[in-house]
């Protein structure tokens, strides 16, 4: 169970950082495609673009790899916002992965809202490796939005 404990640990660390207070900062989990958005985030960093430090990045091989459970899991363990970013439709490294992702996440987004999770807490973007500026803007925008919304509601566990 070493792996799941590691996941649990990460999740709990995320949760424990997310305490309301005067200097409260939201925790946002971002799933980034290795071939575009992850590199885009990197170029935003190397380009020294100013961006808030609320986003925790998890690299995935494709936005199509993002199982909707990942997103619900992040919320379950206390994330205040979740972000998925992949290649622009048509530009997928695996040609169609992001098209599948788009359909699935479209349904998920509506479903999260249905479950009572504010839809503004979950965003999906298409951001290529060269769009460092766009990445910085995305991070700024979602950080501000989620901060204004306050801590996300969570359910009691053990």
């Amino acid at each position: 169970m070493a792996g799941s404990q590691a996941t649990e640990r990460q999740a709990r660390e995320v949760a424990s950082e997310s305490r309301p207070g005067a200097d409260w900062e939201p925790v946002i989990v971002a799933f980034l495609c290795n071939w575009c958005s992850y590199a885009g985030a990197d170029s935003a960093g190397t380009g020294r673009m100013v961006q808030p430090a609320n986003v925790r990045i998890i690299r995935v091989p494709c936005s199509g790899r993002v199982n909707p459970r990942f997103i619900v899991r992040a919320f379950q363990r206390g994330a205040d916002g979740v972000l998925v970013s992949g290649c622009h439709p048509g530009d997928c490294h695996y040609s169609t992965g992001n098209f599948y992702a788009r359909r699935r996440l479209l349904v998920l987004k509506s479903y999260l809202e249905y479950l009572g999770i504010d839809p503004r807490r979950f965003e999906t973007h298409w951001c290529s490796a060269s769009e460092g500026q766009k990445w910085a803007d995305i991070v700024r925008s979602i950080s501000e939005t989620v901060k204004a919304l306050g801590p996300a509601q969570t359910l009691a566990g053990l």
Binding site: E8, R9, Q10, A11, R12, E13, L158
Partner: peptide, 10 residues
């Protein structure tokens, strides 16, 4: 159920 070397046994 735990993390970081601590947790609950249930």
């Amino acid at each position: 159920c735990g993390a970081g070397g601590g947790g609950v046994r249930f």
